[in-house]
Design a protein around this nucleic acid. Structure first.
Lengths: 331, 331
DNA sequence: TTGTATGCGTTATCAA
DNA sequence: TTGATAACGCATACAA
């Protein structure tokens, strides 16, 4: 497309291109009359500067890359929202990459972000805590500040921000024990690093607060149907269980549906605790007790780490904040 | 950052910059030996071309803009997923803009996309069906193909893709009437153009299939608490209602929670139909009957319209596909 | 098959 | 206060 340039504006306004550039960028020492003249032409022609050209000469794009495995999961889209919102306040645009779960694809996304010269990248999710990603960062964006939310990674330019979910899950166990639950099980939908941490929390919590009973962990795989089947199977195999902690609210939802169908009363016969304090936990029947993992806060911190790092300021490499149990009616 | 350029590669490989450029772009007439020589240097230095420079000279960015009001709502993140996935298959990256509900902000996003020289834009949601947006398109991106899914808009370069939700909701009414429901109400959470269309469908459906009873429509406002309050209020005012159609599954979830708390049996005492066939409708108690509005298909069509338009091919300006009722256990 | 020269649209340096 | 002119990193027409 024969796009309009500052030269055409310059010609029409009877000045040089540099003058046009100056008024666009708010350079102060310009005669008021010429500024007005140029402004008028700018507006009448709906001029918008070409960002590619600007980026090239300014050597800065004011773009941020955000990586998530699947934008459709609530926790991820919430995270994007918080990160994008905060960056936008500071004048940055976000390039969002839905990488899927294959690390090879993730690596190629990191390459792409490097081509696009993003000024920072946010990795949303512990699944990025892998050697491949670490290497990709080291080879393609060794100087670009990177934050990983819910995880940690080696590298001078990478920052890890997480909430203490291990401790959080331990507290969930304690909470349940205090509610007189005697047999507590733990379910995850896949073995992400974060889920493994939660599992550790469960295990240590059991050892600490329910040493008498032996821990029960199961994994379901992803997808509504698969989760439901696996949970159903586990429930039948373990009728003695009177409390469940699930690695995600959504699993809790499915369990609640299942219990309802089986005629098991919640929380009288069985308690449920989810994780993340998502919308799901608010609209479930009954409303679900959940571990708030403070996504908003971690995202906020991640953005500010990155902003500082872009400015060249020193920031700490690893930050952890506290989780909080939100008690509702499934416990 | 002193990024590495093709000139440094050229020097190290003992050739000219143009030769380097040629091997990068797969230009055929190059001696195998020099190609290999250059390739080797390219890889050893982890060279990645500067996209800003490429865009500038190629006059094309292979970037697509996607606008949504709030990425956190499931329907929106699903839409982004489908659109992004399909565009990526064709080598495009997506710049995702979370505009919020203010049209002034949307307009400034459209300006930004124009600066970034995106090659097409996707408007996800009927809320963009406004005069401001129409004007912004006409003045800032009059030559850029634009698709609006779930809506329509004037403009030579804009395409509207939607499913026939009016007819769909009419069918919902009929469906309920056939289930011997005698008093059917309709709830929306805000007055988007699409929700108004659904309302029309409800009204026409009532006129056609339930002429004896008078239609009952109410609006709740957004947010979990607000929705719940408003629904509760309406339910108390209208004990005669024995079936609800909600403009979104999420509203249905909240209603289901409310009915459970009130001891109203679903579907025996009251039926519920949601819209969109989202995950919510699958995990509700009981699983929710819903109108599938075929988001995947509309997104797919939108992308291919745009792809064709980018190629300069003629495509039809307005496309509508059919919805489908997914019967589960709330009816 | 390869190198030289030029331009893409903008900003920055230097003079005037 | 303003205007030439030279980059920015890459791709291509033209020459060789």
């Amino acid at each position: 497309m024969p796009d309009i340039t500052i030269y055409e504006i310059a010609e029409e306004a009877g000045v040089s291109a540099s003058t046009v550039s100056r008024v666009i960028n708010g350079y102060p020492y310009i005669k008021k009359s010429t500024r007005n003249k140029v402004m008028k032409v700018l507006e009448s022609r709906h001029f918008v500067p070409n960002e590619s050209a600007r980026d090239l000469v300014n050597r800065s794009t004011r773009m941020i890359g955000i990586l998530i495995a699947d934008i459709r999961t609530a926790h991820n889209s919430d995270g994007i929202f918080y990160v994008e919102q905060e960056f936008r306040k500071h004048g940055y645009s976000c390039l969002i990459c839905n990488t899927g779960y294959e690390m090879a694809d993730t690596v190629s996304y990191i390459q792409k972000l490097s081509q696009r010269k993003v000024e920072a990248v946010v990795l949303l999710g512990s699944i990025y805590q892998t050697h491949e990603v670490e290497e990709a960062i080291a080879t393609y964006i060794p100087k670009t500040p990177v934050a990983i939310v819910s995880g940690s990674l080696q590298g001078d330019n990478v920052y890890g921000i997480m909430s203490n979910e291990k401790l959080g899950v331990m507290e969930c166990v304690r909470f349940l024990v205090e509610k007189k639950r005697s047999c507590i099980a733990f379910g995850i939908n896949h073995s992400s690093p974060l889920n493994l941490i939660k599992k550790e929390g469960y295990l240590e919590g059991m050892a600490k607060y329910a040493a008498a009973s032996s821990p029960l962990v199961f994994e379901t795989g992803k997808g509504v149907e698969l989760m439901k089947e696996s949970i159903a199977y586990f429930v039948k195999e373990h009728p003695e269980v009177d409390a469940y902690i699930f690695s995600e609210d959504f699993m809790g939802m499915i369990a609640l549906q299942l219990f309802s169908e089986m005629g098991m009363a919640v929380p009288d016969q069985v308690s449920v605790i989810g994780i993340n304090n998502s919308n799901f936990s608010k609209v479930s029947i009954p409303p679900m007790t959940t571990l708030d993992t403070k996504l908003y806060d971690t995202c906020q911190i991640a953005v500010h780490c990155l902003l500082d790092a872009i400015e060249g300021e020193h920031v700490s490499k690893l930050i952890s904040i506290f989780t909080e149990i939100v008690e509702r009616e499934t416990t």
